[in-house]
Measured scan of single mutants.
Amino acid sequence: WVPDSEAPNCMNCQVKFTFTKRRHHCRACGKVFCGVCCNRKCKLQYLEKEARVCVVCYETIS
């Protein structure tokens, strides 16, 4: 899990986070992404309901 303080930009597209461009943690890899790069949901083994995942993890999992 990457702390918010260590991620000033999206770890995929590099967009800078602001008050309106929020950070989202991928529940699969723990990296920090913008809403566009972390907009998929899928079922993870260790969680009961679907969770937010990044586009890279989504392609790997599904």
Rank of each mutant, 00 (worst) to 15 (best):
K43W: 11
K43Y: 15
K16C: 09
K41R: 13
R52P: 06
A51I: 04
A28F: 03
K21M: 05
C57T: 00
K49I: 07
N9K: 09
T18W: 07
E6T: 06
R40F: 12
V56K: 09
E59M: 08
F33Q: 06
Y46W: 06
C54V: 00
A28I: 03
L44H: 06
H24Q: 03
A51T: 10
C54L: 00
A28S: 11
S5F: 07
Y46G: 15
R22H: 03
C13G: 01
C57A: 00
V2R: 01
K43Q: 11
P3L: 08
E50N: 04
E59L: 07
K21H: 14
Y46I: 10
N9P: 01
V56G: 14
C10Y: 01
V32G: 05
A7F: 03
G35K: 13
F33Y: 11
L44S: 05
C26E: 00
W1H: 02
S5P: 03
H25L: 04
C37Q: 02
R52H: 04
K16R: 08
C37R: 01
K21P: 01
Q45Y: 06
T60S: 13
R22D: 11
V15Q: 11
P8M: 14
K16Q: 15
A7R: 03
Y58I: 10
E50Q: 08
V2W: 02
Y58P: 03
R27N: 12
N12R: 07
E6I: 12
T18I: 03
Y46S: 15
V53S: 11
K16N: 07
C34M: 02
A51W: 02
N12Y: 04
L47H: 12
E59S: 09
T60F: 10
R40P: 06
Q14K: 08
N9Y: 10
C29N: 02
E6P: 04
C54D: 02
F17L: 03
C10F: 00
K21Y: 03
C38L: 05
P3A: 07
P8Q: 11
G35E: 14
A28Q: 10
V2G: 02
N12E: 13
S5Y: 05
V32M: 09
I61R: 13
L47I: 07
N9I: 08
N9S: 12
T60H: 07
C37T: 00
A51S: 09
W1E: 05
V53L: 06
D4I: 03
K49Q: 12
W1F: 12
N12I: 12
L44Y: 03
W1K: 15
H25M: 07
K41P: 10
E6H: 07
G35A: 10
V32F: 04
F17C: 05
L47M: 13
V53T: 12
T18Y: 03
N39L: 09
A51M: 07
V32A: 11
R52F: 06
C42W: 12
